[in-house]
Structure formats: structure tokens, C-alpha cells
Write a protein that binds this DNA or RNA. Sequence first.
DNA 1: CATGGGATTGACT
DNA 2: GTCAATCCCATGC
Length: 186
Amino acid sequence: MLVVAKALIGCVVEHDGVAGVIVETEAYHDSEPACHAFVGVTPRTATLFGPPGRAYVYRSYGIHALLNAVCEPEGVGAAVLIRALQPLAGISAMRARRGVQREQDLCSGPGKLTQALGIDLRENGSDLACGPVRICAREAAWRKPQILASERIGITKAVELPWRFSVAGNPHVSRPRPLAVSPAGH
DNA sequence: CATGGGATTGACT
DNA sequence: GTCAATCCCATGC
């Protein structure tokens, strides 16, 4: 799962003709209390315990839809949260949906990028290889991104785990910028 | 059935 | 820096 979180950096997320390159992720696993799957299998977490390669989309704070990629075999509740994208295609559509102009404000947060791509809860459980939301392999220019590991943000439990991964110095990474940072390899 | 708590964002002091 | 918006779902009676 940590390998997937790092491997997704540089991959392309596409929905409805709008796309961006992943520049920030966070990993979650049912063995630690910050993960929704920590409580076991419920109607909400069924997607997390299902087959890998699906989308787990849920509503956060009653307002935002957050996109995850389910990983690990069926029966294990684990996923990678997509936290930020560098806009790649359909940027005018992103601006229209987001209501802001600056490119670095379009997808620099997990709630922002789902709004920019038009992703909502209906995509929960869909196949990321061939569904409405697709994640494709890295492009040549993103073969070896410099990845930093830091602590996850916005959570109250298991805050010490360095399971947030981001592209060093990339302006599309969400706030707050990574603090206690260490290299995470490729 | 009632309650409480978020893997956030944007506006405001 | 503080704070409210808003809804899904897990939990407990």
C-alpha cells in the first residue's frame, strides 16, 4: 500500500475529458485508527475491503467528495487518498467548476480536485482501469519524481505515521506544505 | 430513532 | 490565526 501510494505519484487521473498528474497522496490501512476501515466491514467501508483498483469516494465534512484508490487484496481495508493534482487537460472546465483562475488553486487539495474533475459519490466502487474515473500510468516526463515522505494532515489519530507523499517543491501540493520531510525514494 | 464526529475549504479578524 | 457550512454514517438507546 505504501508502494502504491508512492507509485501513484506522477500517474494521470482523468474524468469527463479533464485530467491531472498526481503530485500528492496519503496511505490508509485498516491496522491504524485514522483509516475508515479501522472499524471493520460496514456499508461505508465495504468498498475499502473489496477488490483493489476500485475508487473509494466518500463525503467529507458534509461538503466535499474525496477520491481514493483501493489497494491490497480483497479482505484487507486499505486505500490511497489522492490529495493533489497538477492540471493537465481540460483546464478551462476546471476553472469553470472551481470558480477560480490560478492554476495552482484548481486541484491543490483532495476536495478541490474532485470538484475540478466533476467526481462525486456515484463513482464510489467504480473500476479505475475502465470506469468513469481512470488512473493511467506515468508519462515519460514523470518517470522519476523526487518524492518526499511526511506526516499525514487533517486527521486526529495515528498522526505520527509518515504516510503522506508529495513531489518535492511542486506548487500544486496542498497546504500546509510538508514540514518534517524526508526522502522516500522512487 | 437521536446524536456526534469528521482524510476540507473559504471567508473573515 | 479562528470558524462555520453540511451530510453521511457509525454508534447507542
